[in-house]
Write a protein that binds this DNA or RNA. Structure first.
Length: 327
DNA sequence: CAACGCCTTCTCCCTTAAAC
DNA sequence: GTTTAAGGGAGAAGGCGTTG
């Protein structure tokens, strides 16, 4: 099982000459490599469980904790370490047979397994970024109207605070986009928005209630579109049952949403609205990782569990109506 | 009524480009 | 020089129409 993935890729056996197969074979291109199932599972893990993590490290640390056993070792962990361990256990649950495979593996093999999963996470993230880049323009364009100025689907430079419409959506809740001075400062970078200052597009009807943090939070139509785009298929947004191919949720047996998947989608949507060309989890301009973690922090907060439960229920009805029992 | 093949849709993967 | 993401293209899945 360990190296079955290299089965039919002998043409790259020693990596010395990478000749495009079409130069070697006649006829249509054959599938070169069978993707390791771990990569595939990694895609889902990144989207629905934990987007930003170093999987080899997660595995290595997780194995150590697992072998130590006892619940008192868990108590001694920092908050971050405990979160990492929760993600680790979720990973074991999601990937069938991973636990026994890890236990039978050497340190190096564990790292290799981690890298395969990591590859899936990164690949899925890149694909979703690409897909949303064009689609998000459709969602933010008012029905029957056009954006002015027009934003091309494949260009990002005119977005972010450079555009009236994307700027309004990205404007953090504490600031007033209608104020021309604020707008100028946001545009020229005089005001920088850190990831934990949430943009108004997260709220239902894009309106924020200073008296009530939860009012409309994470209930926006834009987020639902983004969520469907990534999880139930791009075409499921406008029309039911048009797609002839299964979307991500179905492929991965996902019947209900996860907290992390909301944060993931919000992060992707946020990036799609910005003028930033290149997705990076750490850069200071997009600050995507902090944005993601700040949402996760709220959703994981035990004190907020009532609100969060309501939110999840609402989302399940929006996105997975077939699996939600009618009440 | 069944079987075949077309066609749309979505994911996967490789190459290219850019950043560090 | 190495690593990382964007971009484009090919493959695969499954519904639907058509034909025998």
């Amino acid at each position: 099982m360990s190296n079955s993935s290299e089965g039919d890729s002998s043409w790259t056996a020693n990596g010395q000459k990478r000749v495009h197969p079409s130069a070697l074979e006649l006829g249509p291109r054959k599938k070169l490599t069978t993707q390791d199932p771990l990569v595939h599972r990694g895609c889902h893990f990144g989207r629905a469980v934990h987007a930003f993590c170093n999987v080899p490290t997660l595995l290595t640390n997780g194995i150590i904790l697992l072998s130590e056993g006892g619940s008192d070792t868990l108590e001694s962990l920092t908050v971050d370490e405990r979160k990492e361990f929760v993600a680790f256990r979720e990973l074991l649950r999601v990937v069938l047979g991973l636990e026994s495979r890890l236990m039978a593996s050497s340190k190096e093999e564990v790292v290799e397994i981690g890298e395969l999963i990591q590859k899936g996470i990164n690949g899925a993230c890149a694909d979703n970024t690409k897909g949303m880049k064009g689609a998000i323009i459709d969602w933010i364009t008012p029905k029957g109207q056009a954006l002015s100025p027009h934003i091309p689907r494949n260009v990002k430079s005119g977005r972010g605070f450079n555009h009236e419409h994307t700027g309004a959506l990205l404007c953090p809740t504490g600031l007033d986009w209608t104020n021309i001075q604020t707008r100028t400062k946001l545009m020229n970078g005089e005001i920088q928005v850190p990831g934990d200052q949430w943009p108004v597009f997260l709220y239902a009807d894009y309106s924020y209630d200073p008296e009530d943090l939860w009012n409309g939070l994470l209930w926006s139509g834009l987020l639902v579109s983004a969520y469907k785009h990534i999880f139930t298929s791009p075409s499921s947004i406008d029309h039911e049952l048009k797609a002839t191919r299964s979307g991500n949720a179905r492929i991965h047996g996902m019947h209900c949403m996860t907290k992390a998947s909301i944060a993931y989608v919000a992060m992707q949507a946020r990036f799609g609205l910005t003028s930033a060309q290149i997705f990076s989890c750490t850069d200071l301009i997009t600050d995507s990782e902090r944005f993601y973690s700040s949402i996760m922090e709220l959703l994981d907060d035990p004190d907020e569990s009532d609100e969060v439960d309501q939110l999840i229920t609402w989302w399940n009805r929006q996105v997975f109506p077939l699996y939600t029992t009618t009440e």
